[in-house]
Amino acid sequence: MLRIPCPHCGERDYTEFRYGGDAGRTRPAHGSQSVRAWHDHVFLFANPKGAHREYWQHVHGCRQWLVLERDTATGSVGRASLARPPGVP
């Protein structure tokens, strides 16, 4: 059972969360007119075999989107932090 250490709610089963994919990509700025940038962001994935930073939302908990560090080769779980940078309302 993948257990995710939610910064708000503690370690919980992954079934309480919604997966959001690779958190290593930066979404183009809103209004960016580069079709190429959007294409790459939306459709291309690093999909590494190893260290992965990924989004999870604690939908059945605090509803916060988190960034979890997880190794996709071993399944081992690192830390999770809030996706929203600190200090932002």
Binding site: Y55, R63, Q64, W65, R84, V88
Partner: peptide, 20 residues
């Protein structure tokens, strides 16, 4: 409904954190 809700939260918490 659920997908839209998560999507809005995703945008606000990961991409548009400056929006109040």
């Amino acid at each position: 409904a659920a997908d839209v809700m998560s999507w809005l939260e995703f945008l606000l918490q990961t991409a548009w954190c400056d929006l109040r």
